[in-house]
Design a protein around this nucleic acid. Sequence first.
DNA 1: CCGAGTCGCTTGTAGCTACAACCGATGACC
DNA 2: GGTCATCGGTTGTAGCTACAAGCGACTCGG
Lengths: 166, 166
Amino acid sequence: MEPRWLTDDEMAAWLRLVAVVELLPGVLDGQLRRDAALTHFDYHVLAMLSEAPRHTLRMTELATRTNATLPRLSHVVRRLEERGLVERAPCPSDGRATNARLTEDGWAKVRETAPGHLATVREHVFDALTPEQVSQLESIAGAVLERLDPEGRVAVGIEAAARRRG
Amino acid sequence: MEPRWLTDDEMAAWLRLVAVVELLPGVLDGQLRRDAALTHFDYHVLAMLSEAPRHTLRMTELATRTNATLPRLSHVVRRLEERGLVERAPCPSDGRATNARLTEDGWAKVRETAPGHLATVREHVFDALTPEQVSQLESIAGAVLERLDPEGRVAVGIEAAARRRG
DNA sequence: CCGAGTCGCTTGTAGCTACAACCGATGACC
DNA sequence: GGTCATCGGTTGTAGCTACAAGCGACTCGG
């Protein structure tokens, strides 16, 4: 099997992309863990809940909006529940389903954590980019995303979060 | 503390980027684990060794080229050594240092694994992008990388791997 | 030399994720 | 109503990573 090798341009782009994918989670996790004792994924879960009507989402829906598998989400939500940031209740209309809801403490946590997190995102990503590059990044990441997630599960979450700052 | 919020464009780009960062490692790990019982990070380690003179690198140098911390690399190399893909030997010129070297089996593993991995990278990333976008991606990832890794440790590895296919 | 400080790396432990197995609830079908 | 496949979610276990501590080797000033 003779592979189509990568061109020099592709290889350069690939190595940089891999480095970003490797380092970015660590930076985001680091800041949030220091300042709020939260993983970036924890924060993502809380943020998605905070944008939902009544601060409530079904586990399955929450999983797609956080790009997570259901087992992973289940473990994380259990820990968040133990910390009093989230609570779970069986869905009245479907006995199988579970609704996750942000508690008062959880909502407060999101509000006090968001500024620091946003500052980190700005500092490490957007302050390094021109407005033109931001738009290019959106196109590129969107195109790659369609290959990574053919069913387009993620697209829903993006649309929902676009009308942020509720 | 009043944060500078993200613009709509920035938020859209950010959510897509986060999704890529979340999903890409899983896709890469998945293919390599199925086909070669390797993590993407394992593969990265083997690939960097395969490009080095005499298939040998110092642990510290290998860590910078794989964007890893030294403890992480140490654990991974120990496992690879147990599988006979890599071997370690104390550096003759510096008693503190350790040299990691690809074994014959490790070199064979890289050669038989590379085509499938490259196909995955093409399929999920570069086939979705125009040549222009590839070049934009290189600039964008490079700019972000400078913020994530101020000391520029990673730059060395990029330069070294640019002259690939040796 | 010799002691303090640093370097290069390893080890131990806690915590998170992936994968697979599992379980009750639901719906389709007869 | 009973059976079966599927859905929505949880739990258990193995494996990897991060963080902190530790340890020998080097260096440099006195």
